[in-house]
Structures are given as C-alpha cells and as structure tokens.
Design a protein around this nucleic acid. Structure first.
Lengths: 342, 342
DNA sequence: GCTGTGGTTTGTAGCGCTACAGTCACGGGG
DNA sequence: CCCCGTGACTGTAGCGCTACAAACCACAGC
C-alpha cells in the first residue's frame, strides 16, 4: 500500500510503463524492452504489435530506470563556455553527429565560468553520463578532482595539453607563429596582439608567448598587446584598436584572438578612415562565417572544429579499459586562410 | 549471485553509492540522502561527517536513481534550432538563470530540423524532464502528439500562438508593420523583404503577410520578396540582394529576416558601391551584437530575448494542475532600434 | 516417437535512491 | 512517576527497467 500513488500529482509524466504496455500487448515486459533496445531480437509481428500499443498509450521508455538497471547511459555531456559564435556551432555539430553514429546523445550545458562548469559537471556525473567533454584546460580545482576520482572519461578540447584525462586540439602556438610570419612577409613591422582578459586569459597566454617569440625571431621589437574585457565581442575590437593606436601610432598590423574582435577592429577602422589592409593589416581567429563575408574579408586561422568534435567523441567512446593510461593528445590541425585584410 | 558485477566494466562510473557512504559514515542511507536533499533535516555535526566521507569517496548522488525513486526530475529540456547567433545565447541564459533560481537545471539539445527535434523530445521525455522548451510552433507531427499524450509541460517560444501547450513570444506582425512604417516615413517606396526558405519558412509567413499588408496600407505596390536558403547566413544577404536588384533596380529599402542577413546585404552593398542608407535602407532583426557595430549600424528589432527565456521557465514551473487549461500566451514585447542603416 | 537445434519469449533479482512510517532518546508538565 | 511532544535518525518497500538464464516451441533428422 505504501508505494501506491507516490509519484501521483508529480510533474504530469506519462502514466504508461513498460508493464502496462506489456500487459496490453499480451507479452512479457522483457519483450517490450527488447522491442525498443534490440528490435532484431523480437519477431516482426510481435514488435509491430508492441509498437502499436506503445504508440497508443503514449509510452516512452523511462531512461532513468533503464540506465539504473543497465548501469550505463548513452548520454555524453558537453559543457561549452558560450554559444556566441559559429565555431562552437560546428564543434557541437561534430559532437552530435559522431555521438549519434554510435547511438549516443549529446546534452549541452552552458557555463560562463568555472563555477558554473563545476555545477554542470556535477549534474552530468549525477546522471552517470558516458563521458564529459569540456572546453579548454582551465577549470575549477574541484572539477578535475571529481572527474578523476570517479574515473569519468573526460576529453578537454581546444587544447593540446589536458589537465584531466584525454584531450584534442591543435597547435595555437604554431598557428600564431604562421600568422606573424605571414604579416612580416607582407612587410608589416609594428604588429600588435589583441586577446581577452578575465577567466579565459590563460587560454591566450600561449599565443601571446608565441607571438612575442616569433617577432623576436624576425628581428622585430616585442610587439604591443592589449587584453580586452572578455564579455565584449565586436566592441572589444574598437576599444583595443584605440588603445593600441594611442601607444603606437605607427601600428601596421594586428593579430586578433577571434574573428569577432577582428571584425570590431575593421568596423572601427571604417569609422576612423583607416585603410585595411593599406594602413593596417588585420587577422582573426576561428574562421567564423563573418570572416569570409566582411569587407575586407579576413585572413584567419581555420581550426578543424568539426573534426575536433568528432575526435572528442571518438576518444570518449573508444572504451579504453578503466585504469589504463589515457591515449595521447590528438591534434586535428588548422589552416591559415589568407584573404583581403592582409 | 546474478546482480553481482552487472555494471562492472561499464563506463567507469564511480563505485561509490549512498549505501557505501552511509556505512562509512556510520549512519543510515536515509541520512545521507537527507544530507544532500534536505540539509536542514540533519544535525550540523552528522551532516559534516557525511559530507566529509562523501568527498573522500568521490560520491556524487545518482540522479537517475533519485529521479526514479522520487518520480520527479529537476531538469528542463531546451531544444534550440541553432546556436549561430547571440539572440539564442541571451535566450538560453534567461532559461538557465530562471531555472537555477528554482533549483532546476537546463539541458540543451541542438536540432537542425523537425526530425532531430523529435529525437531530442523523445530523449527528454525519456528522462522524464520536468518540462520542455521548444522554439517556434513548427514541429514534426509526432512531436505534438507525444508531448500532449504524456501531458508533458511544454512551452513554445518566439511565437504567440502555440500548437502544443503554453507559449511566449512577441508580435512579429506588429514589429514588421513598424519596420515598414519606419521605412515609408523615411521616404522609401520600393521595399523588399528577405526571409529564409526551407524548414523554417513558415516562421516568416506571418511577417511576409504583415509586410505586404502594411505596404498596401501605405498605398505602395506589393513589395518584392526573396527567400534565401536557410543554411546560409551572411551569404544569403548577398545572394538575396542580387536577386532583388535584378528584379527591381530601383529598390530603395530592404527588410531582412535576421541581422545576419542584413549584415550580408550591407557587405554586398560595400562591394557593389551601393550607399547605405543613401541608396538603400537596410533593416535587420534580432539586435545581435553585430547590429550596433557594423558600419553603418543597423536598424533592427530587439526582442526581449532574455525575458522570453525567463518567462518560459516561469510558465513551465508554475505548477498548474495537470489537466487544467494552459495559461494564455505571454507577450514579452520588442523594441524598434533605429540606427544608421535607415 | 524422440532428441537436437535455434530462434523467440519469459521470470527473477536487483540497479541506487527516496517517501513514509516508524523508532528512539530526551525532557517538561501533570 | 508516567505520559507525551519533539527532533534526529532508521527500516522497508518499491520506482521502471534490464541482464541473464531458463523455458518454450516448431520442426528436421534419425
């Protein structure tokens, strides 16, 4: 008598259970289960009957129960810092497509900072996700501890040195170096760098170091740099350009941390009457859609974002035996796309 | 003997269970459960001990089990068609913030078409989400049937007439009319409309009708319209502009379905040497960040995206008794933002 | 007629957690 | 001295599903 009516008024979930479907279809619960999970194990005719009854009753298998019973969920949790740009769009598509091919689902959670990321990790761990995909290698201290303690398969993306388990990315240093060489080859001598400050700052530290190093190798003075506030997008470009021009009126090239910043720089140049690339060469990062469309079109770095998503899933679901050493970092490469802005 | 080692090699989930934590802390499982769900029911001292043990064992409560036992999950499923633009970013933030305030989580799934949307709905229903938030009112036939059969609380957003349960949006007709009146007041006489074709086409039907109607009211000839392929963003603007100019060389105003299309139109104008707004006035839709930054800055419609997200959660978690009539559609309004492009 | 074969179907015993109804210790009032 | 209220904690019975082994069944071959 106790259990009766426990989940009564609840959220209005469907009243249909596997039991009920089984009874209505005149089969055992296991046959219903098999119909949904391993259709080939059930005879055509039986399956059709079960599906018909299920449809009529509006039955949708309870994944929580299934997961609890089977001990494995087919959900991959992806935590992304923002959905502001098309780079992440392609990345997520890569994740979803690859996961779908293996019969898994991707659930996304947005996290603006390490705190929110940790909360999302907790939730995904609570659901006993099959794996978790993070962006970057800067996390809350507890995040790594938690994931490791639970042996949760984890992939950090957009980086080549993971802090937790596995990772996939590309060489931002090499890309930055190529950018610098490209600008130098175009005759630029006073080159600036625009990144973001705030929580993501360290993601740009490697790029900044490579930038300085390569400038030195080219025999040029250490360039200028400006770190924009991370919440700003296009506006950051404007702000940064003003700051850099004040410090170096002869600035003739600027390397931006994202295409959006670069777009902001170009818009600011249009307002100030600065000719791009005549007076100032501008480069972006990410090859967002705007890069090819803006006037002048943007020289940028095109990471293989979609492949990164696919590779992350591949690593996650590769089923390495627990306790084994993590596979080595994967590098999906990038491409320098040269356009009108340089 | 059967159950033993069932979920053995599995995905590598944590071995820690509530039982084990309880044993290690010298309390009953219920005390552990209460420690996590209703801390105030457990004495300070006991709670601290339980939490310490849990942390040491890397225990994270199994939400699937909890959900199964309690019959209610604290997850809201949000399905969005794209994460390409910042409008959805603000919308999702609204969802997440409002949900967090009520102790719920938002899980996001990306769906490019009705098929994928249906799959995502199935998954969320499988997890017995507390509610589901969709974008628009165009769905797979089965989607509505499924949601209704299960009495799943559902909110359709960005529309004022829901097809399933509840909805929140703003008047796209009124916004479109105001756009037309604005252009007419600026002396424009040959005005075109650029929308998207494909699966989302019907989302623009209302706008197109309002556009035509308002042109008529102003005593102008029925305008031109062009439906771009939905996968294109900025590129669609270029393509559409070319098509419209071929059909009407005297075109002096164009209303675009999104800021991205409008951006594409402006870029195309820059390449063709068309002065905006001198020769051609351009309006966008959405007030994405680019709208205020592009040169010339863009006249656009600013929906209260964030409020829309918040309102959706409010509707979802308002706890109307099952079977009751759905609350009336909510209108969060919009704002016409006039800038340089007109 | 009987056994072997292989595909299909079924029973059983939990998965880890939570609701609910206790149990227990303590203490103040009658 | 007994009774009962109060607050902290515990025992039990499932939530709906799935793994596994066992049962079933039609039919071929001996």
């Amino acid at each position: 008598m106790s259990g009766a009516g426990r989940n009564g008024a609840g959220g209005g979930g469907s009243r249909a259970t596997m039991q009920r479907v089984a009874a209505a279809a005149g089969v055992s619960p296991m046959t219903v289960s098999n119909t949904f999970r391993y259709p080939e194990r059930v005879q055509e005719e039986t399956r059709a009957r079960v599906l018909a009854v299920a449809a009529e009753l509006g039955y949708v298998p309870n994944l929580a129960a299934g997961h609890l019973a089977s001990g494995s969920s087919r959900v991959v949790g992806a935590i992304i810092p923002s959905i502001r740009n098309s780079s992440f769009y392609r990345y997520v598509r890569g994740l979803q497509d690859a996961a779908a091919e293996q019969g898994h689902e991707v659930m996304i959670s947005l996290a603006d900072d390490a705190e929110q990321e940790l909360a999302a990790v907790r939730t995904f761990m609570g659901w006993r996700a099959a794996g978790i995909v993070l962006v970057g290698s800067e996390h809350h201290a507890e995040t790594a501890a938690l994931l490791r303690a639970a042996r949760m398969p984890t992939v950090e993306t957009w980086v080549r040195r993971g802090a937790i388990d596995m990772c996939v990315g590309f060489s931002v240093e090499e890309a930055t170096r190529q950018m610098v060489r490209h600008l130098v080859a175009r005759g630029r001598r006073q080159i600036g760098f625009i990144g973001y400050s705030g929580g993501v700052a360290r993601r740009f530290a490697d790029r900044l170091a490579a930038f300085r190093d390569e400038l030195g190798a080219a025999g040029l003075a250490a360039g200028l740099d400006y770190m924009a506030h991370e919440a700003d997008g296009f506006a950051a470009g404007k702000q940064a350009l003003e700051a850099l021009l004040t410090r170096a009126p002869g600035l003739d090239g600027v390397i931006c941390a994202t295409d959006v910043i670069a777009g902001g720089v170009i818009f600011a140049c249009q307002r100030r009457g600065i000719d791009v690339p005549g007076q100032l060469a501008v480069t972006g990062w990410g090859d967002y859609e705007i890069a090819s469309e803006i006037v002048p079109s943007l020289t940028t770095v095109r990471p293989r974002t979609r492949d990164m998503g696919r590779t992350a899933i591949e690593l996650l679901l590769s089923g390495r035996e627990a306790g084994g050493p993590p596979p080595p970092p994967r590098d999906v490469g990038f491409e320098l796309v040269c356009r009108e802005s340089t």
